[in-house]
Computed example of a mutant assay.
Amino acid sequence: MDSHESGYFTETTSIEVVTRRNKKATNERIRFAMEVITRKLHEAVKEIEPTQQEWLQAILFLTKTGHLSNEWRQEFILLSDVLGVSMLVDAINHRKPSGATENTVLGPFHVERAPEMEMGDNICLDQKGEPMLVRGRVIDLAGNPIGNATLDVWQANDEGFYDVQQRGIQPDFNLRGVFRTESDGRYWFKAVKPKFYPIPDDGTVGRLLALLGRHPYRPAHLHFIVKADGFETLTTHVFDPDDPYIDSDAVFGVKRSLMVRFEHVTEDARLAAFGFSEPFWEVEYDFVMAQAGPHN
């Protein structure tokens, strides 16, 4: 028997005995990860001291979570989201230099190959909801404009649903579009004022939130993926600071730097200037891109 296989399992020696068995792992990264996971898991079990029935319930919870997951729904990602793990992984992998716009989670409703649109176009295809103008600049850390940057934009409608959640009700690619900045880095497009909405809460994750006394809602926001040659890709949101759920996002995606005022515009001169026939909401936000490459 190899020395790393020796040792008998006890409550006291459990971590050491289990992790030593992995000494000959062929992948060092996996060996390291499993050592950390085993240690933390055993420490949690020792602190919680679950009954056999409680442990079985935990196993059944994970089993049902797996059964709910398919190509259209990933309940494990949702679980990761509500536990704050998705945001933590995102933060670790997208550390930014001071002054750069912060990242946040992609979310489950991004769609590839959204149509490229002309600057100033309206991404709302069904004309439902309160009209909104979104504008700003894409710049670097020194404030220089970034021309030909692409902004992949998507949002929920005024009822809190994305087009992929209401096929046959919303037009395909409703409230989605890709825009390219001009040489001065500016962008602008028309949309509708978004609304807060619940994450899917009819499964195991929703049950867990209810047991924890937590709501399933995300505050109103707009999604962006901003890309430019020579710069790190930015995946982020812009949030309405007056939303009732701004301080309690179910997936912890809100960052103070990503909040921007939603201004209600009613003056006739400004309505005419921006081509609106009725009052509209205006959001202005500048995206600050970090140069590609190491900066930590």
Results as ranks from 00 to 15, higher is better:
Met1Tyr: 07
Met1Val: 13
Asp2Phe: 10
Gly7Gln: 11
Gly7Asn: 11
Thr10Ala: 10
Ser14Asn: 06
Glu16Pro: 04
Glu16Phe: 05
Glu16Gln: 12
Val17Trp: 05
Val18Ser: 14
Lys23Gln: 14
Lys24Ala: 09
Thr26Met: 02
Phe32Asp: 10
Glu35Ala: 06
Glu35Val: 04
His42Gly: 00
Glu43Met: 13
Lys46Ser: 08
Thr51Tyr: 02
Gln52Trp: 05
Gln52His: 14
Gln57Met: 06
Ala58Asp: 01
Thr65Gln: 00
His67Ser: 14
His67Val: 07
Glu71Ala: 14
Gln74Cys: 13
Ser80Cys: 11
Gly84Trp: 12
Ser86Cys: 00
Ser86Glu: 04
Leu88Cys: 11
Leu88Asn: 13
Asp90Trp: 05
Ala91Lys: 13
Ala91Thr: 09
Ile92Thr: 09
Gly99Met: 00
Thr101Arg: 09
Thr101Met: 01
Thr104Ile: 05
Leu106Cys: 03
Gly107His: 07
Phe109Leu: 06
His110Asp: 06
Val111Trp: 04
Val111Glu: 06
Glu112Ser: 15
Arg113Met: 04
Ala114Gly: 12
Cys124Phe: 03
Glu130Gly: 09
Met132Ala: 11
Leu133Thr: 02
Gly136Trp: 02
Asp140Met: 13
Gly143Asp: 00
Leu151Tyr: 03
Asp152Ala: 05
Gln155Thr: 09
Ala156Trp: 06
Ala156Cys: 09
Ala156Arg: 07
Tyr162Asp: 06
Asp163Lys: 01
Asp163Gly: 02
Val164Cys: 10
Phe173Ala: 08
Asn174Pro: 10
Trp188Val: 00
Trp188Tyr: 02
Val192Gly: 04
Asp202Thr: 12
Val205His: 03
Val205Cys: 11
Leu208Arg: 14
Leu209Asn: 13
Ala210Phe: 01
Arg214Ala: 07
Pro219Arg: 11
His221Phe: 01
Ile225Asp: 07
Asp229Gln: 15
Thr235Lys: 15
Thr236Lys: 09
Val238Phe: 09
Asp240Ile: 04
Ala250Ile: 00
Val254Ile: 04
Arg256Asn: 15
Arg256Tyr: 10
Ser257Phe: 09
Leu258Phe: 01
Met259Glu: 10
Glu263Asp: 02
Val265Ser: 12
Thr266Gln: 05
Glu267Tyr: 03
Ala273His: 12
Glu278Met: 09
Glu282Asp: 13
Glu282Tyr: 10
Val283Gly: 07
Glu284Val: 08
Tyr285Arg: 13
Val288Arg: 12
Met289Ile: 08
Ala292Trp: 11
Gly293Ile: 02
Pro294Phe: 03
His295Val: 03
